[in-house]
Design a protein around this nucleic acid. Structure first.
Lengths: 162, 162
DNA sequence: TATTAAACGATAATTATTATCGTTCGTCAA
DNA sequence: TTGACGAACGATAATAATTATCGTTTAATA
């Protein structure tokens, strides 16, 4: 398990490896992101960072968040951020999502074995259901571009192909 | 398993039960949604419906999609539609999401037993990983409003409380 | 320390979505 | 069946989230 301190220390090294300038703004933005256990919005990050750098621009936060995502320093919580996707399937089911074209396929609940959760970190949380997402590359996209060479290519996959 | 025909037949009945007028626009919008196995965006629905009702307004599609969501005729594919949520946790982990306040909590991967998928409906899909989401109500929200009485209350839970 | 490209702040533009408002149409009682 | 009325419609303005532009500043490095 990575500590906040070690992540913060690695930040400069990782930036240099990526050819990114280590600016004060970037350091503070990243610091806030690893300091919080929450999963904030860019706007929320902006508010926190502004306490330390009052002159920072919201655009700078967005630009750097995007840079960090592309670099793999950050991840999006969900592949489905962005425009609303509708589901008229009333049967219980799960989804399979292509990281390239963002197409969504249904998987009936019966295709999965039971989910075992050992113990719940957050006390008092009332579980309604488990939602499983199979993340990967669909047949069509795999055929179009067979091999995304190495882990570095994953960032480009955040963009839509189809 | 509900057939498209039965769903389309139920549409009028369900609308009347909900006090919603059965308009041509609504019938076509809903029809397109159950006709497609995809999970379209409102914009995509608009394009499809426009082929049948050229004068329809995009606003009407949005309004009715919202009405259908509130009524439970449709669901959103993801709770994370809307603004971007960032994740600086580089360890493999899953998420627990509160349907009321939309707060997101981390669950280490080790808290779950292995996921068993019997067979993949979409041939050629290359699985990268499974992402499990524990959906429910967090302790704080449950304490604030203990019982969301009956299934009808679930629609209101789509809105943010915190 | 001087050069230079990258990053910054300010702000305009774009995209997704919601709200407004006058007109039309589905519902239901007569 | 018709007529009244409120709900839904289409057009369009407004808002929110995000991205792009552009002139200025700053980090990297020679």
């Amino acid at each position: 398990m990575q500590t906040r301190e070690s992540l913060q220390q690695q930040f400069e090294t990782r930036c240099r490896a990526l050819g990114l300038a280590v600016t004060h703004q970037r350091t503070v933005i990243y610091g806030e992101l690893i300091a919080t256990g929450e999963h904030p919005t860019p706007e929320a990050v902006y508010e926190r960072v502004k306490a330390q750098i009052p002159a920072i621009s919201l655009g700078t936060v967005y630009k750097n968040v995007k840079t960090f995502l592309d670099a793999g320093l950050l991840k999006e919580v969900s592949l489905h951020h962005g425009t609303l996707r509708l589901d008229a399937n009333t049967e219980p089911h799960h989804h399979m999502v292509c990281t390239r074209c963002r197409r969504i396929f249904d998987i009936p609940e019966t295709e999965f074995g039971p989910v075992h959760l050992k113990n719940l970190p957050e006390s008092g949380f009332q579980i309604d259901r488990f939602s499983i997402e199979v993340v990967g590359v669909c047949g069509a996209c795999a055929a179009a571009r067979p091999e995304s060479s190495g882990p570095g290519a994953s960032a480009a996959d955040n963009k839509r192909v189809l």
